[in-house]
């Protein structure tokens, strides 16, 4: 049935005539217009049958989408809460005695270490604020010229220095004997880590490199 489709806005044709629109098109636009019309004509020649399944599925599709949109915030909030709870649980749990490291004396079967008992919480003592009396000022005394130190004092000093040298922890593996003096156990080798960590920064390094370079390690 050939039906004339009316103009959308029939009264506006006179006003349109007064509106200045340049009629000349650029050549490429004219060419594109012809090609577009040709393409549209080609596409509209064949009318495929109406797909009723698509028409009936469309509301279901929107319903599914609306469910997904509604559940998405729940999923996001649930995931975030779960992650937070798991991380908190990892941070606060007790060390597992089974997973504690084994101390293995040489030539013996390994024995499990006993889980360390947590020290009961001690109530913190509130220190009373007592006014501290001012320090007595040191009186400057004139320096006295004294004789050389006695020999015994010098010896003690050298012994102390030697002891200090001996106290420096070594990084070599050490043999340690467990047990009591009555019933000594088999000796075990303890591979000790370096006793003293390297300082994070030293004043010399700070002067040389600056803070940011020390921090980032370059």
């Amino acid at each position: 049935m050939n039906e004339q489709i009316p103009l959308l806005h029939p009264g506006a044709s006179r006003r349109e005539a007064r509106t200045k629109i340049p009629q000349e098109r650029s050549g490429w636009l004219e060419l594109a217009r012809q090609q577009s019309q040709k393409l549209a004509r080609t596409r509209s020649q064949f009318t495929p049958p109406l797909r009723w399944d698509r028409l009936e599925q469309a509301p279901a599709r929107w319903r599914r989408l609306s469910w997904a949109v509604a559940l998405l915030p729940l999923l996001i909030v649930g995931g975030a809460t779960g992650t937070w709870a798991f991380v908190t649980h990892l941070q606060t749990r007790q060390p597992d005695p089974v997973a504690a490291p084994l101390i293995t004396p040489l030539g013996q079967t390994p024995r499990r270490a006993v889980a360390p008992r947590r020290r009961p919480a001690v109530p913190t003592k509130v220190k009373e604020q007592v006014p501290v009396p001012p320090k007595p000022r040191r009186t400057v005394r004139p320096r006295q010229t004294t004789a050389a130190a006695p020999v015994e004092t010098a010896r003690e000093e050298t012994q102390q220095e030697e002891q200090k040298v001996e106290q420096v922890p070594s990084t070599e593996p050490q043999r340690v004997i467990f047990g009591t003096s009555d019933a000594p156990a088999e000796p075990a080798i303890i591979v000790s880590p370096p006793a003293k960590m390297r300082p994070l920064w030293t004043p010399e390094a700070f002067k040389k490199k600056g803070m940011s370079r020390i921090r980032w390690g370059w």
Partner: peptide, 22 residues
């Protein structure tokens, strides 16, 4: 340009005044 609508039809289609469409 492509579909060849008049300005009046276009203004009604887009919901804007005629001069705006032009």
């Amino acid at each position: 340009e492509m579909e060849g609508l008049s300005l009046a039809e276009m203004s009604a289609e887009l919901g804007v005044p005629l001069h705006t469409a032009a």
